[in-house]
């Protein structure tokens, strides 16, 4: 474990807590893409299959349980909670995320680290996570006024993988651990997809105005 990866995990945890806070505090999921939440639930379910088979550390197990349960709880909330579900922007959240699942799965079949069930599903989860934010970014562009908690949630969610890229660089130079090119490429693609958002997030912070993505 190094500082970059720990900071990345904490940033990821904060993003989840911010989303839970937003939904709990405002009893609303306006501005949140259910499709992105469903994609993330799928990412965690296919990535943490080893939750019960490979014990790495208490920390690793606890974090996996947190990410799986929180993502499923948020999807349930947005679909079934009587109050929250009414605020879901159903007609704005129209990204065809099934294509992202199909594309990632095909990519995983052709480019896994090893052609085993476990590795193919792991690669699938990595490829899918790289594009999982797309429905949320599209929704953000359509919903003009999005509350601050939502923009902070997206900022932290985007920052965590950028910190993981620093972690891979650090591990490359210190542990001679070349890492996995699947993680490197997907992590970079994932971070690049946020650059546009990061720019407008920084602008809105400097001008202390609400974040507005161009139409």
């Amino acid at each position: 474990m190094n500082i970059f990866r720990f900071a990345g995990d904490m940033t990821h945890l904060v993003s989840v807590l911010l989303l839970l806070l937003k939904i709990y505090a405002t009893k609303s999921c306006s501005g949140i893409s259910l499709k992105t939440q469903e994609l993330y639930a799928l990412v965690f379910l296919t990535r943490y299959l080893d939750l019960f088979t490979d014990f790495i550390s208490i920390y690793n197990t606890v974090m996996k349980v947190i990410f799986i349960t929180s993502s499923l709880a948020i999807v349930w909330c947005m679909r079934a909670h009587p109050t929250v579900r009414r605020s879901y922007d159903r007609d704005q959240d129209t990204f065809r995320h099934h294509f992202l699942v199909l594309l990632s799965f095909i990519m995983a079949l052709f480019f896994p680290d090893l052609f085993t069930t476990r590795e193919v599903l792991w690669a699938f989860s990595i490829y899918l996570e790289a594009v999982a934010i797309l429905p949320q970014l599209v929704l953000l562009q359509r919903c003009r006024n999005v509350d601050n908690l939502t923009t902070h949630y997206i900022f932290f969610l985007g920052s965590y993988r950028a910190l993981y890229v620093l972690n891979w660089i650090y591990r490359y130079f210190t542990e001679k651990h070349a890492g996995r090119w699947i993680s490197w490429i997907s992590g970079l693609v994932q971070t690049v997809l946020y650059l546009d958002f990061f720019y407008y997030y920084f602008i809105s912070w400097k001008s202390s105005e609400k974040l507005r993505l161009p139409a």
Binding site: D113, T116, Y164
Partner: peptide, 10 residues
């Protein structure tokens, strides 16, 4: 990579 590297990251 022949061996399956450990998945020690989240």
């Amino acid at each position: 990579s022949g061996e399956a590297l450990p998945h020690d990251e989240l």
